[in-house]
């Protein structure tokens, strides 16, 4: 088991090695749903929740599969569990809070194809995190994802009013902005002890 403190796991996942801006995980929703701050916030919340649940599940699966000596099934098990977790969360929210369900809309099922979730499960097993570290890692990664999404949305709202050259409209200018954000986040590198 790795010896990192919980706080350093959290800061590392949220800022230093931000999932979106340093590992390029979850780029699709990052580009797709970052047009408005309100939707970005909701998407971030949903992703964070699914991350937390699937991180705990992945921890249990990893140890169960190690116990029966079948680590090659890990990837298949992870993806199935993530897909069913999202489904479960969807049904749960629909039952408990129809208002929230309507607000999240299409974003919930989309989370299944978010590689940040699978990446989280894979990274935590690769790094041999303990249970509490997994939870901290999931919270940090979720917070980092939400932060990146909201920052991007804020910039894009301003960008809509700016005069962008015809060739750069759409993905190209969004990528340049993401690149600059990514460089800014490199400034956090000293935080990881």
């Amino acid at each position: 088991m790795s010896e990192q403190s919980l706080w350093s796991v959290f800061v590392n996942a949220a800022l230093v090695n931000n999932f979106v801006l340093a590992y390029f995980l979850g780029i699709c929703p990052f580009m797709g749903v970052s047009a408005k701050i309100a939707t970005a916030t909701r998407m971030g919340g949903a992703v964070m929740f699914v991350m937390l649940v699937s991180s705990v599940c992945a921890f249990l699966i990893h140890h169960a599969l190690l116990a029966i000596g079948a680590p090659f099934l890990e990837l298949i098990a992870f993806i199935v569990v993530i897909a069913s977790t999202v489904q479960l969360v969807e049904m749960f929210i629909k039952k408990m809070s129809p208002a929230l369900f309507r607000a999240l809309g299409i974003f919930l099922p989309l989370i299944t194809t978010n590689c940040a979730i699978l990446g989280l499960a894979l990274f935590q097993t690769n790094r041999d995190y303990g249970f509490l570290q997994c939870v901290a890692f999931a919270l940090g990664a979720g917070a980092g994802f939400t932060l990146a999404l909201i920052l991007m949305a804020g910039i894009r709202e301003k960008l809509a009013l700016a005069e962008v050259p015809e060739v750069a409209k759409g993905s190209a200018i969004a990528l340049v902005v993401a690149g600059i954000l990514s460089m800014a986040f490199m400034g956090f590198a000293g935080l990881a002890a």
Partner: peptide, 10 residues
């Protein structure tokens, strides 16, 4: 570094 990836693709 990560930033370069975004810039190159852009």
């Amino acid at each position: 570094l990560p930033g370069g990836g975004f810039f190159t693709l852009a």
